[in-house]
Structure formats: structure tokens, C-alpha cells
């Protein structure tokens, strides 16, 4: 059974003007268990919207969305989310360890066990020594590590990433991309990852889906990236994949210009 299935999904936000066009229309796709699935596409096409539907914080208006074969009723710790915003998602009044232990704590685990679990994920994301710090004492990269660790500590089966490293500097981004691949392989979680950075998409994803420009956005093409991990961006096959996807997105953008 696939981890996520989109079946002819259409989406309009409740706040949208009546009669205005759907953001996503007739979108169908399936993400396999344990897969690293990457989504790229023009700004405003509805990538974040798609993630929110899987997370359960928004509901599609047409079609069906299944996670592990069940309809999505609302947010659930089995589907974690790592947000693009660096500051907002963290709980600024909790320490790093307490932030990471939030999932276990709302699941009713005793405090000692929460902190023990937190420690495990602190180690996994390389934050040892920073457990007692508050978010404002961390760098942007460290804050995103906290978000990742916190999501993992809730023991999800699937993690959604909305451009998690977009606001970080290039060097930090590279380090975190490498570590994310390692974390994915260690945990076996299904990953659905949205990015604007095609190099990043090819570095991380087993499959890279390209979305068309909205309204009525859809997935136009899915690339299989058949390269071994950890990936080497100097490999010529890596460069070929990046070039192919870039060409696809440029054509998508150009077709838009012609229409207007």
C-alpha cells in the first residue's frame, strides 16, 4: 500500500473568491512507503498547499487523499511537518530538549522518558551540547535541526518538508542536505520534500515531480533519479538530471508567457 495517494484532487481555499479557479486540479500521484519524493515547481503553483493537505491542516475540495489507505481526518503525529519558517514553528519558551520532547510529552509519556527520547534525537541531528539552550540562542541551521529532531521524536511514518533549508546559507544547506539523506536511510521514514532548488531535488530524491504553473496546477512529469546515495553532484549523470528538470521548468514558465 502506498504511503500517500492523491486521487483526482482539486483544491480551492475556503477564503478564495467564489467562482475563482482551483489551485490544484485533477491531481493524481502516489508516494511509495519509505520513498524520498521531491516536488519542484513554479512559485504559487500549490506545493505548500499539497503538503498541508497531507498534513491535514487543509482539506482538499475535490477527490480523495489517502495516507496508508485511510482518509486524512486532520493533523496526526504519524505525518510530521518541517516548516520553511525558521523562527515561528519552534516553541521559544522551551529548551532545545523540551522542544524535541514535545511530541512524546503530548503523547502522555512521563517527563524522564520524553527527555530520554529527546536526547536520542538531539544526538541524531548533531545538537549534543545544546540541549539546554533556548531557540533564540541558536543559529538558523541549528533551529532547523531542532525542527527535524522534534518531528522525528514524534515517531512519524512520513515527514513533509516545505523548503526547510531555503532560508539558510549555502554551506549550512549542503551539510543539512547530506545529513537528511543519512537520517532518511537510518529511520526509513517516507519523505515528501518541496524545494525550489533543482540541485537539491536531485541530490535528495528518488523521484522528482515537476508541477505546472497554477491555477489548476498539476504534476506534469515525474523523474526517476536512479543514482546511488550519497550522491555526488560532480557525477555527469547528476548534471544531466538537473539539466533535464531545469529545461522542463523553463518550458513550463515559457508556455505561461506565451499564454499571457
Amino acid at each position: 500500500m502506498p504511503a500517500v495517494v492523491f486521487d483526482k484532487v482539486g483544491m480551492a481555499y475556503p477564503g478564495q473568491k467564489a467562482g475563482s479557479e482551483l489551485i490544484l486540479a485533477d491531481l493524481s500521484v502516489a508516494v511509495a512507503q519509505g520513498e524520498f519524493f521531491v516536488l519542484v515547481g513554479p512559485s504559487g503553483s500549490g506545493k505548500s498547499t499539497l503538503l498541508k493537505i497531507v498534513a491535514g491542516t487543509e482539506k482538499q475540495t475535490e477527490g480523495r487523499v489517502l495516507a496508508n489507505g485511510e482518509t486524512i481526518a486532520g493533523p496526526d503525529r504519524r505525518r510530521g511537518m518541517v516548516f520553511q519558517s525558521i523562527e515561528e514553528p519552534l516553541f521559544q519558551w522551551l529548551t532545545v530538549a523540551e522542544n524535541i520532547g514535545f511530541g512524546p510529552s503530548v503523547a502522555g509519556k512521563p517527563r524522564a522518558e520524553c527527555l530520554e527520547m529527546a536526547q536520542r534525537y538531539v544526538d541524531l541531528v548533531g545538537l549534543r551540547g545544546h540541549e539546554q539552550k533556548f531557540p533564540h540562542e541558536l543559529s538558523g541551521g541549528m533551529k532547523q535541526r531542532v525542527q527535524i529532531a522534534r518531528t522525528l521524536a514524534a515517531q512519524p511514518e512520513l515527514i513533509l518538508f516545505d523548503e526547510p533549508f531555503a532560508a539558510l546559507d549555502a554551506l549550512t544547506r549542503r551539510v543539512l542536505q547530506k545529513e537528511l539523506t543519512r537520517i532518511w536511510r537510518e529511520t526509513g521514514c517516507t519523505m515528501v520534500y518541496v524545494t525550489h532548488d533543482i540541485r537539491e531535488a536531485v541530490l535528495l530524491g528518488q523521484r522528482v515531480a515537476v508541477m505546472s504553473r497554477g491555477p489548476r496546477a498539476n504534476i506534469t512529469r515525474i523523474y526517476d533519479i536512479d543514482l546511488p546515495y550519497p550522491r555526488d553532484d560532480l557525477d555527469s549523470r547528476f548534471a544531466d538530471a538537473v539539466k533535464a528538470i531545469e529545461g522542463d521548468i523553463e518550458r513550463e514558465a515559457a508556455s505561461q508567457w506565451e499564454q499571457n
Binding site: G74, P75, D76, M81, F91, F102, V106
Partner: peptide, 29 residues
């Protein structure tokens, strides 16, 4: 309070009562 903060709590498994006591109150202090 940012929607991301509330949704983060929900996606970590917090129910609405926990979102209220563990996120909304501390965040509005």
C-alpha cells in the same frame, strides 16, 4: 500566534486542548 506554531504542535500529535494549554497560553503570555 503564527499558524505555523499551532500547526507544528498539531502535527506533533497535540490535540486542541493541548494546543490551547501548551502553545496558545505560553505564546500569549
Amino acid at each position: 500566534i503564527s499558524q505555523d506554531k499551532l500547526n507544528a504542535a498539531r502535527c506533533l500529535g497535540a490535540n486542541e486542548r493541548q494546543v490551547f494549554f501548551k502553545v496558545m497560553i505560553p505564546a500569549s503570555l
